[in-house]
């Protein structure tokens, strides 16, 4: 894989030492690169932009694993590939369905019958541990995004993005099991 833009290495190194402006420029450039990368591999997938965001969040949260001694492009594309494979694995054969269904399902919980709770657990099981935790605390226990943010150290916006994805993944699963 060719290096798209050599200065990215130095932008990343600056970002690692806390240079906000450099990081902003870097993320903008990466978003463009990712959009192209995923578009070439997914075609006209409506989820491609979500995947771009997921990958940007992953890059942000795992930025300490970049070793300045090594090429940035190798690090960056390995993360993009990992996220792409993850995405394909999760969505390949599961059509998405209406999100309201799952919102109702999680939010109301009027009849906490054992089977409903089991279903919910099964849906939650399909999520990453962190997403599961966020869905639990925000959607089920009703904590605010700000509270979860303080506790987990993730930015509120990252939590909102993750929550949005998690609910979508769960609704996809519901749609899948019904079809």
């Amino acid at each position: 894989m060719s290096v798209p833009n050599p200065p990215l290495d130095s932008l990343m190194i600056a970002a690692q030492s806390g240079d906000e402006a450099a990081y902003h420029v870097l993320l903008k450039a990466l978003a463009v690169t990712l959009r192209g990368y995923f578009a070439r591999r997914l075609g006209r997938d409506a989820n491609a932009e979500d995947l771009v965001q997921d990958t940007l969040i992953a890059i942000h949260e795992r930025r300490a694993t970049y070793d300045p001694q090594r090429p940035f492009a190798a690090w960056f594309f390995a993360i993009a590939r990992y996220k792409l494979i993850d995405h394909l694995r999760a969505t390949r054969r599961s059509p998405t369905c209406a999100m309201d269904e799952i919102e109702d399902f999680i939010g109301v919980d009027e009849e906490p019958s054992a089977s409903a709770r089991l279903d919910l657990e099964r849906l939650l099981d399909g999520l990453s541990p962190r997403s599961r935790d966020i869905v639990r605390t925000v959607k089920i226990e009703g904590q605010s995004v700000a509270e979860v943010s303080q506790r987990s150290g993730l930015s509120p916006i990252a939590i909102r993005v993750l929550l949005h994805r998690a609910v979508k993944a769960m609704s996809a699963k519901v749609g899948n099991s019904r079809s």
């Binding site: 970002a15 806390g18 906000e20 402006a21 990081y23 902003h24 993320l27 903008k28 978003a31 965001q53 940007l56 969040i57 942000h60 930025r63 930015s155 509120p156 916006i157 990252a158 993005v161």
Partner: peptide
């Protein structure tokens, strides 16, 4: 999202 992430570092 990028604004938020950049502001976070």
């Amino acid at each position: 999202l990028i604004d938020a992430l950049a502001g976070d570092i």
